[in-house]
């Protein structure tokens, strides 16, 4: 029994396909409500700001074992190791996504639903196309699925909801990765150090901008 596949029942699957005809603009479903939200039970209005937090410190994580496994492979499909930096799973990005979808704040329940259903869809699709778990697919097979859902405007109508899931997952994966020390180095952030002087951009930057 695969709990992830079971998480997506037939009704949900149909809804995902139907949703294709009532597509909202990409991203708009994740914007904050127009009015200030009522307080909820999270880390509170006076948390310890000096502490370094790990996923799970503020509220319980809720991914199932199967969701964790699928999320880890998808994270590394989106952000693999290369010569500039490690893979997303090796710096605990799946744990961040788990923290995100488990958070008690408004709109996170929407992400929880999108991501749980999306991970379940990914497993079901892997089984359908390749008769194997997503984690067991070879790169070429994983890419075959991801290529179909990685860009919402190009996705077939029946894959549009899967494409929305992929876009959201990729955004969370990037946010998780590029905020780690390895991710900041990978993307080329060199600040957050005390300096004697601030002299503005170096000459090679100004030259490239046509300002030298």
């Amino acid at each position: 029994m695969n709990p992830v596949s079971d998480a997506m029942d037939r009704r949900t699957m149909i809804k995902w396909v139907m949703a294709a005809s009532a597509a909202t603009a990409a991203g708009s479903q994740f914007s904050w409500a127009a009015a200030p939200a009522a307080p909820v039970k999270g880390y509170g209005t006076d948390p310890d700001l000096l502490k370094k937090y790990a996923a799970g410190d503020c509220w319980p994580l809720t991914f199932t074992a199967a969701e964790k496994a699928t999320a880890a492979v998808l994270c590394d499909t989106i952000i693999p190791a290369d010569d500039k930096g490690p893979s997303a799973s090796s710096v605990k990005v799946p744990e961040f996504i788990d923290e995100w979808v488990s958070a008690p704040y408004p709109n996170h329940d929407r992400d929880r639903k999108l991501i749980s259903e999306g991970l379940a869809w990914l497993e079901a699709e892997s089984q359908r196309r390749f008769q194997n778990d997503f984690a067991s697919l070879v790169l070429r097979q994983r890419n075959a699925i991801c290529d179909d859902i990685c860009h919402l405007p190009d996705a077939k109508p029946e894959l549009r909801q899967a494409a929305r899931f992929f876009a959201r997952f990729r955004d969370l994966c990037a946010s998780g990765y590029y905020t780690t020390p390895a991710g900041m180095k990978d993307i080329g952030y060199v600040g957050n150090v005390a300096l004697e002087k601030f002299e503005g951009p170096p000459p090679e930057v100004l030259k490239k901008l046509g300002l030298a």
Binding site: P80, G85, N143, C150, H151, D154, D171, D186, Y189
Partner: peptide, 26 residues
């Protein structure tokens, strides 16, 4: 510019990347 990465860094770029992922995304 190159401010400290935060939530949202690397996100929401699909209209310019055409939805890249993997090494191309990095």
């Amino acid at each position: 510019g190159r401010q400290m990465p935060g939530y949202g860094t690397g996100a929401g770029m699909e209209n310019i990347t055409r939805g890249s992922y993997g090494r191309k995304f990095k």
